[in-house]
Write a protein that binds this DNA or RNA. Structure first.
Lengths: 219, 219
DNA sequence: ATTAATTTTTAGACATGCCTAAAAATACTA
DNA sequence: TAGTATTTTTAGGCATGTCTAAAAATTAAT
């Protein structure tokens, strides 16, 4: 139905729309997709002709419902494949993004339905991001950043705000993973670093940079 | 490494080489890939430049070891994905070809290794075709056509020579599947049809056209 | 062995998606 | 508000992979 490239543009614009709720600039898209503004303009016009987004010259773009649906479906596929790779094939959460970037473009609705069932209808991917439903509904994250939680409040680690390989490997190294229960024992006013008490009774210290990229659910 | 299209050409040429052991003609490739001879010539020259095949104008082509390896790797990926779709996702054997045609181009050696392990290192795909090893070895089929088996020889149905959806659905309808034990009770000299006795003690009649597309292993 | 039929290649064109360089529009600043 | 800087678009081109139509080579046939 839609090309590899078209889906990637729609997904990028969707992603940008989640943060800024205004229309999305040509340059922002070019930056995210590591391409040039001129190329973006070309593709935007093509997508506008197909009614996948609204476009006014020099005014940026906004996805239509149709375009948003294609983007959300692509996100759904990406996240389901990530669950498959981690849960079934035992990939690390730092290894799955690039492969899922390819798999998300496989075109078969039945395949995704069956994959979803096989995985047990997961609600979140291995990084804690919500998986859109078959109908295209996606719930807003109910998680909060660890650095905004007050001391002694028990929480469960439930997601990450930074998806980079480096960050995920760092979490592996210090022993933090999704599902880890912990609470903030102590907050350092000087540098924002935290002393975290894990449910293993062990305590670790993490920097503010780490804390502000960890999503938790209060319990 | 190689494009979607390049892999498809190499796979097609490999397939044609299995039957005819001479060099493969431009038209044969065009027919198999449902494209035009002129397009084939273009691609052939490109693949020859990359040392994936030997090409002399007007003399047809032959895969190099390098080209054969790419083709076999693609076949391996295709067949492993077919096993995944049937065994894990519960697709019918008549439904998996088109999806595997897409999945076979996903580029990640680690993914295929892990998929192979997850599936339990299968030796054959859902149609009974052998799965090449990681090293690129592929064993020649040890199966024989049902219409060449002599009466009363017990056999196990082990593969198909016709992979079309129509044929596979026909086999489903008459209750034949891989693993079915049977023997030929009676052979009709007039039209080549066979009376097959299944291990369920039930007997069915199948036409010669069906029999000559069923691969069996004598037991 | 020469003509006829077929196969294959070349030539020129088109669509997709990308690029650079230059022009146009918008945004910022003094 | 004029002038400068930035963003965006246009213009023209390139690579991939496709096509049709015509030319060249090969194969078949009388």
């Amino acid at each position: 139905m839609y090309s590899f490239t078209e889906e990637n543009y729609l997904k990028a614009i969707y992603k940008l729309s989640e943060n800024n709720r205004q229309s999305i600039s040509t340059n922002a898209i070019a930056d995210l997709l590591q391409t040039k503004a001129a190329s973006v303009t070309d593709m935007i016009r093509k997508l506008a002709e197909k009614k996948l987004l609204k476009y006014e010259k020099y005014k940026g773009v906004e996805l239509t419902e149709k375009g948003k649906r294609v983007a959300v479906d692509t996100v759904r596929k990406h996240r389901l494949w990530e669950v498959f790779l981690c849960d079934k094939l035992k990939f690390g959460w730092d290894e799955v993004h690039d492969i899922a970037e390819q798999l998300e473009h496989i075109n078969s609705a039945l395949l995704i339905d069956k994959l979803d069932a096989f995985l047990g209808y997961p609600s979140h991917d291995p990084h804690g991001d919500p998986i859109p439903t078959k109908n295209g509904d996606i719930k807003k994250s109910e998680f909060v950043l660890l650095n905004t939680v007050k001391a002694l409040q028990p929480v469960i680690m439930s997601g990450v705000a930074d998806h980079s390989v480096l960050f995920l490997q760092h979490l592996d190294k210090i022993g933090l993973r999704l599902g880890t229960s912990c609470l903030i024992e102590e907050m350092n006013a000087y540098d924002g670093s935290l002393k975290l008490k894990l449910n293993s009774k062990q305590s670790i210290s993490i920097s503010k940079d780490v804390a502000k990229n960890i999503l938790v659910k209060p319990v």
